[in-house]
């Protein structure tokens, strides 16, 4: 039974890890969690759905369009809404992300309604492959692989490209980045674009599993947040590990303790981490220069 639980945990954890990574990338820039991230991804998933069903395009085109839309939505959110705030406090920024999420949620309800729609996808949640004693759906396999590859690409980008390193520098100290010639404002916009794309990949992998409606990413956002707190809001790698860990812990809890209380685990973890290790399992406490 254990390998089966681990496989399910890894699959759920992949989604949490993506959401946690998306959250941490912008958190490191603004120092507030972007609560609109889930609904930005939800609306982008609806864009893919619209192309697939209304315009009957292929998967590649529809998903590509959704990712392009997600990128523009992320950049637009930062450039048109966040950046225009005058000397925002953290609370102001949080309220802006909450306001934006409510606007997106309202828009999705008005445009597409609250119906739960079947989301067409190349692989299925019901088609099962067996690896020895473990049965796993083709959708889960795709989720684990796609999420894993995407996160490796993101880490490689941050670590090895000039722009990626400049982005990390901007996250730590935007003024110092600017005086080194980094166009910090454009880089911050780009950060939100990349974060939105990562969140949207999570949404596109979640929609075929649980059907598409405006509440698509609520659970994933909260779990991604819990995962980021668990691993460390300041460390992208830690947040991703937190995501996998949360997926596995949750499924272990469901299998051996109680299925009914499975979704409570994430919040118990937040409470326990904040009590004993507020910077997360893999985070370092560091002071930030003002």
């Amino acid at each position: 039974m254990l390998p089966q639980v681990l496989a399910s945990g890894l699959s759920a954890g992949s989604i949490y890890a993506l959401m946690a990574l998306a959250l941490v990338i912008t958190y490191k820039t603004t120092e507030v969690p972007n609560f609109a991230q889930g609904d930005m991804a939800m609306v982008s998933a609806f864009i893919a759905y619209m192309f697939l069903t209304d315009f009957e395009t292929g998967f590649i085109f529809a998903f590509g369009a959704a990712l392009v839309f997600a990128f523009l939505l992320g950049v637009g959110f930062e450039v048109l809404l966040l950046r225009r705030m005058r000397k925002p406090t953290h609370l102001n920024l949080i309220i802006m992300t909450l306001g934006f999420t409510l606007a997106l949620f309202g828009f999705a309800g008005w445009k597409w309604g609250a119906d739960q729609r079947q989301f067409p996808f190349p692989v299925s949640a019901n088609e099962v492959i067996r690896f020895g004693s473990v049965s796993i759906s083709t959708l889960s396999v795709a989720t684990i692989l796609i999420a894993g590859i995407l996160m490796l690409l993101v880490f490689a980008f941050f670590r090895f490209t000039k722009l990626g390193v400049a982005m990390q520098a901007t996250q730590q100290d935007p003024i110092a980045a600017r005086i080194n010639g980094v166009p910090a404002r454009a880089v911050v916009g780009l950060t939100f674009g990349i974060s939105s794309v990562i969140g949207t990949v999570a949404a596109l992998l979640t929609a075929p599993l649980i059907t598409l409606d405006p509440t698509l990413m609520w659970d994933a956002l909260l779990k991604g947040f819990a995962a980021a707190v668990l691993g460390g809001l300041n460390t992208p790698v830690g947040a991703v590990l937190g995501g996998y860990l949360l997926g596995v812990i949750e499924n272990l809890f469901g299998a051996y303790i109680s299925v009914e209380f499975k979704s409570v685990v994430a919040f118990l973890i937040i409470v326990i981490v904040l009590w004993f290790r507020p910077s997360g399992l893999f985070g370092r406490h560091h002071e930030r220069k003002v």
Partner: peptide, 16 residues
Amino acid sequence: FSELTVWENLKVGAYV
């Protein structure tokens, strides 16, 4: 940039 390595700091300096 205290979280970046020495080499990464220099790389940012070479951004232009």
